[in-house]
Nucleic acid binder design. Sequence first.
DNA 1: ACCCTATTTACGGAATCCCGTAACTACCGG
DNA 2: CCGGTAGTTACGGGATTCCGTAAATAGGGT
Lengths: 221, 221
Amino acid sequence: MFKRALVVDDHDVVNEGVLKVLQSNNILDVAKAQYCDEAYLKIKKATLDKAPFDLLISDLSFKEDYKESKIKSGEELVEALKPDYPTLPIIIYSMEERLQKVRSLVNTYGISAYVCKGRKGAVELSEAIHQISKNQTYLSPQVANALNSNNNLEIDDYDIELIKNLSLGLSQHEISSLFKSQNVSPSSLSSIEKRINRLKDIFKANNAIHLVAITKDLGLI
Amino acid sequence: MFKRALVVDDHDVVNEGVLKVLQSNNILDVAKAQYCDEAYLKIKKATLDKAPFDLLISDLSFKEDYKESKIKSGEELVEALKPDYPTLPIIIYSMEERLQKVRSLVNTYGISAYVCKGRKGAVELSEAIHQISKNQTYLSPQVANALNSNNNLEIDDYDIELIKNLSLGLSQHEISSLFKSQNVSPSSLSSIEKRINRLKDIFKANNAIHLVAITKDLGLI
DNA sequence: ACCCTATTTACGGAATCCCGTAACTACCGG
DNA sequence: CCGGTAGTTACGGGATTCCGTAAATAGGGT
């Protein structure tokens, strides 16, 4: 079982809560950090002190405050740590339930577990810890099928780009101009309309607003 | 000081964290609830058992799950409790930082404190408890000026509902009809247009799609 | 009662979106 | 070379949104 863990969450109350979960799993040597930079430094220092952490539990989103910060999100923290600590088990503990996000964290950085903040967060954290100690990964039920979901293969990068531009407030005409200037094809207003129509069909959206809302919820953009 | 408190939050980890804060304030007799209905019943029962709670700490938003629930938010819980327990001190502990919301909770229901979930949530909760025990109210710094300043660049529940309906794919005309049928005012198409315009202004959105995307990112809807 | 102000509602024209139809182009197999 | 097909572009008209102006309504204060 793990000996020495670092918990990273900007909310002090949540930090305490996670601490409690670790204690009840007999992990008693626990450090806390409320900023990603702080977490990064603590991990570095722990290595130098020959008392490295063997488990990291981190949130994804951190509110910015008066402090200057270099690492601004849990994802950036993981990215910064992976090269030097490729084997450090990482549990992401976050509100975020977007499958796309989970998938990219698992595939790109090889995180060990993804636990959604929710009613049973504590239970699921414990479960994650046990699974990881047996060298297995863990995903909360809400996002359990993040990896095997090949349900939206009919959507390609062009579609994503298109919807993303919609969500950025561009009109269809502006998107057409943009695509022309980027030599992206198809770029005619008509084709863009047609694509949007097809996407509305696929996602059963009433209009473009609805389409953007749905795809945002799915984590596609 | 308080003897017996009830903590209501749907996240078990947060519940544990708040518990810890109470313990460090020497409030050791603490009950927890993860649903509003559960909280309501526990308070009722405690009174019958002649061991009433003398402090309530509750979140505002609760995720719905498979369980049927009658009281769906902290606000509704407070509303349900106030008639029977007008003197019970209530601390709202929530992510929500909208001044409008804080103002209405203080003015309508006379809550004793409003603490924002954040980096110093635990510290502020302690501070709130001390203030209340001296019969004073407490507001987190983020929302401290909720009562005196009447900032008109504020978003209220109506706005949220409006944007939410947009995100569900309703046309402005449909929203107008819906609001009329729900006796929500204002409900005319013209007023709805005007509101959306104002919101686009506030959030610097180019169009309605952009507005929905932005507010979704902010977690407002 | 009155004025003053803020909110709600109404209306109209321009821009944009929505949706169907149809033409044009590219590519492939025969 | 030709026919078939998928993808792209073009166009038109109705619906909806966008945006400015203005009238009607509601409250508050003197």
